[in-house]
Design a protein around this nucleic acid. Sequence first.
DNA 1: ACCTAGAATGAATGCGCTTACAAGCGCATG
DNA 2: CATGCGCTTGTAAGCGCATTCATTCTAGGT
Lengths: 361, 361
Amino acid sequence: MSTTPTVYDVAERSGVSIATVSRVYRNPDSVRAETRERVLTAARELGYVPSGNARGLASRSTGILGLCFPDYSDPDAEAGEADDEDAAMLYSDQIIRGMERAARRHGYALLIAASLKGGPESLVAKVAGRVDGFAVLARTVPTEELEIISRRQPVVMLAGPREGTDHLDHIEVANFDGQSELTRHLIEDHGLRRLAYIGSAEESPDVEARFRGYLAACRAGGLEVADEPDLRVRMMTQAEGAHALDALFARHGAWPEALVFANDQMAVGALHALAERGLRVPDDVVVTGFDGIPLSRLVRPALTTVRQPMLRMGEEAVELLVKRLSGARDADPVSLVLPVSVARRGSCGCRDGEGVEPGVR
Amino acid sequence: MSTTPTVYDVAERSGVSIATVSRVYRNPDSVRAETRERVLTAARELGYVPSGNARGLASRSTGILGLCFPDYSDPDAEAGEADDEDAAMLYSDQIIRGMERAARRHGYALLIAASLKGGPESLVAKVAGRVDGFAVLARTVPTEELEIISRRQPVVMLAGPREGTDHLDHIEVANFDGQSELTRHLIEDHGLRRLAYIGSAEESPDVEARFRGYLAACRAGGLEVADEPDLRVRMMTQAEGAHALDALFARHGAWPEALVFANDQMAVGALHALAERGLRVPDDVVVTGFDGIPLSRLVRPALTTVRQPMLRMGEEAVELLVKRLSGARDADPVSLVLPVSVARRGSCGCRDGEGVEPGVR
DNA sequence: ACCTAGAATGAATGCGCTTACAAGCGCATG
DNA sequence: CATGCGCTTGTAAGCGCATTCATTCTAGGT
């Protein structure tokens, strides 16, 4: 419709200069009460809304924190429009929640952007140019690029350990410990000997660390294992998890006693596929995941997995960013390691339910 | 560290004018390939990242869609830091998911901001000034204010019917139909006669519509009911739901056969509280909710409720915004009504589980 | 009444980019 | 050889606000 009103319009209408209008919003106390009211009234009448862009440009800050993540979504799920009801949260959703919560506390808004087919450049550039600082999930964008950006604004990398000399802040979880503890549980407590690990070690440093944890536990338990996963995958999605079964079977011609997946999504996909084949979990084969997404508790049997404090990761990311933004700009890079915990549930043969559900059981 | 590079720096380094640098990013084809490479190289060497603010200011668009919502979070939940594992999605989380998904498809990023104690003005102003268009959950901000803003940018209101003459786009769900169908189910299929409705009709138009649906079904079933809810609440949180039990009991001195809550959060809170009192659901009392948040299926017994297509609401919101942004700016206001479905689960006495869970049961 | 320290306001500038508009260029046309 | 056209690139004028500095106003102080 009509052109959107600006400070100039408000200034004219209230008979002051644009500087005063600006002050009314930025620093109300520096303007005489009477003048202030006059300005606010004019603004209201005009329907004035300050331009965030102009403000940001002039003041060099936006009051926004960002989050970039890769496209985790399951292609299948995308296809089926009816999955509304089944909408379980993914990894990234939890982090969004955590960041949003913490950002709100600090008066920041949150800008979230997931990469699509479009080159990663465009993604980060888009976000980086619009926020005061941001977090990135591993593998969303090359580290070098982040290095460059982090020279001018805080960047924290989620779920990756520091690689050699990078100057980024990192937040990761105890991948090694978690996976090795879970594996130990399978071996010692359930007496399983023939395990198979499914996941790609190159996928991310996290998955790499998990696999090393698995290896360590296997060896500690006296099992002989190869130096690399029994199966590598590309995507770590449900579809891939289901597909993994075929691949495994084709290769070995028999089922191992336990399928140790590098994340929950794949494990859930496998659960599906096993049910279709008429195989019982955990009786015929044990399945475990990693992450502790809510869906892991919804499936039957509930998935034994390693819970990451995903919400907290998001919160810590924001805390870190805020800290950098308020002073500690070039303090040494931080590398946080958050603890994980093994959730022993039905899919490994432990009793189901953990007492956290409300209501009578 | 050093001052962040700008177009000027890139232009100088690559021996072109700033206009050309700009073109390289905005309209690559209009620049000779050789020149383009030169510019991109210089940009890379300098670590140049275009300023979203400046771009937005100059081009009057941001490539960002926004979402504003009120503070839905449960105070209790906030307090207990250990609820990570229990992190169930709330209403707003689902909408975020939907919007993010759709926004990504259209090449937009999503800015999310929840109101805090800070006046609502600041909230909407902050968002409105930074996005091309945005969605608002009901009751986040007064409608008049939105009216004003919607004169210059698309605004869609989620979960509220159009009020008289407002010019906003609306997306709502079939609140009336859903609640009345659920109520009918309790009366006809389960033979219940003494029901109680808990929820505030002023809370929002949605809740108002739900209550009317409840009334209609009660009357159709030959029950006599008062013209207003048996209990009004302020917050619709879990705490409030638990508290509602006391209030109800204090007032009537006895339990009704069924507690019909206006949303899931309260119903879950009630489930907790009933368990603490040693009352069995559904044997001693039936409980129902509304929304169909994932948590509703996690509790024991699973909650009978009315499922809203929350994910889809978010998606539709984005579609509407995008449509407005690409042409149909002053088409007539749209008012979408999305269908709901009743989920009959354990808390009303129907068998639990609905066949949607993967894996063997 | 006169002077002065503050407080309140205005004028002017720049933030980094987009985008008409114009200018320069090589080349086919008449 | 003058003309005109398409393709590239440069020039310059903002976009709407924050902020510095200068200016005016106000309230004490003497």
